[in-house]
Simulated assay, not measured.
Amino acid sequence: METAKGLQTSERFRIGALLAVAGGLLDTYTYLMRGGVFANAQTGNIVLLGVRAVEGDWSGVLHYLLPILAFAAGVIAAECIKERLKEARVVHWRQVTVCLEIILLALVAFLPQQLNALANIMVSFVCAIQVESFRKVRGNAFATTMCTGNLRSGTERLYQFIRTGEKDQLLRAAQYGGIILFFIGGAALGAWCSSFLSLCTVAVACVPLLIAFLLMRH
């Protein structure tokens, strides 16, 4: 799938923005509603795992280890889907990954609080599929499920603009900033929806994902 300018459809800014909204919402959801776990940023889970290990809290270690392993499994799943469907003409492999995300997140909405561990596993798996499948926006390396790399790259581009005056560097810095803002918006939306949708808040993430899926058909 390529645009008239040769750009992959999946790399368009609007697709990245929609995915960032979903990414921000999912991180807020698992943190607020599913026991303080980060679905996207596994660094936080790894740090907390280490803390629990020092405390001798082995159930706590497992609490954070499972989403970490699920994230790794999601990366492998995305690569397998890409390998099997990269030559398919009827549907693009990235559309398949987005469809899988929507299905799994819809299922998470029906999981009770007693199954928080399973919910966190599934959401972490989904986030890994997304971050592995969508790695560029307008030809630049981006992440739609975490912000540290985007913040670093955007700041670097801004510095290059200040140093050289190249407008292209400013445009790229703005694109990174835009993705971060959409991520923040998704996080805020997740927090707001949690107040009245509770565990079903995760289903809201299916909306931007569905729009992204439909946009990739054109």
Rank of each mutant, 00 (worst) to 15 (best):
T144Y: 06
K82D: 06
L104C: 09
P112K: 10
Q95D: 08
Y64V: 01
A109W: 03
I121T: 10
K136Q: 06
G177I: 09
V137G: 10
S124W: 00
G185M: 03
D168N: 14
L69V: 12
Q169T: 09
W93N: 07
L115G: 00
N150E: 12
A119T: 05
A109P: 02
L65G: 03
F134L: 03
P112Q: 05
S153Q: 13
I180N: 12
D168K: 15
A117Y: 07
N140R: 15
I121Y: 03
I129T: 01
A77S: 09
E132K: 11
W58M: 09
A70K: 02
L100S: 06
E156D: 15
Y64A: 01
C99N: 00
E83A: 09
K86R: 09
A77E: 05
L62Q: 06
H92A: 12
I184C: 07
M146N: 07
A109Y: 02
L65S: 07
P67C: 11
N120S: 00
F110S: 11
N150L: 13
A119S: 10
L62P: 01
E132V: 08
L107H: 03
C80H: 11
E156Y: 12
Q169A: 15
V137R: 01
T164F: 06
L181I: 12
S133D: 05
E83Q: 06
S124V: 00
Q169L: 07
E132H: 10
W93T: 03
Y64W: 00
I103W: 03
Q114C: 00
G154T: 11
Q130H: 07
A173V: 12
G185F: 02
A143K: 04
S153N: 15
F142D: 01
P67D: 05
R89T: 08
L62S: 04
T145W: 01
